[in-house]
Design a protein around this nucleic acid. Sequence first.
DNA 1: GCCAACGTTGGC
DNA 2: GCCAACGTTGGC
Length: 152
Amino acid sequence: MVNYWLFKSEPSVYSIDDMKRDNAIYWEGIRNYQARNFMRACTVGDRVLFYHSNAKPPGAVGECKIVKEAWPDPEQFNPESKYFDPKASFEKPRWTVVDIEFVSKFDRLVSLQEMKENAKLAEMKLVQKGCRLSVMPVSKEEFEEVLLMGKE
DNA sequence: GCCAACGTTGGC
DNA sequence: GCCAACGTTGGC
């Protein structure tokens, strides 16, 4: 079964254009348990909305897919990394990454405001107040609606 | 740059 | 286990 997700990234740190250039990466640096647990539920072939947060304007900009399921985030073991976690060990890793691959960049950005204004997306986690999750599930219908909004 | 909404930490 | 203090996220 295919699941649908939304991954947030700050474009000043890593944008959809970086994603397009690199083609496939592991999604490093998630340090929130809820987001981590969603990543652990990702399966190969799941579809991902790529979202620009802290941007002007914030919004969905493209599509990716899961190509490798959860494995330990190597950054947690690296003292030089800003994602280093002294409480993590090889025996007991705390944090997880998944590998994603670029699928497409939207013709146009689908802004957060547009998504809030679309009645079909009223139940979407993203548009609900106080949602700061950087990895979150999306329904099939919501995913397809956002894809449609990103065309033309 | 501000600040609301959370999540995490650590003293007790 | 409570909760105050602190840190982070992310829209505006």
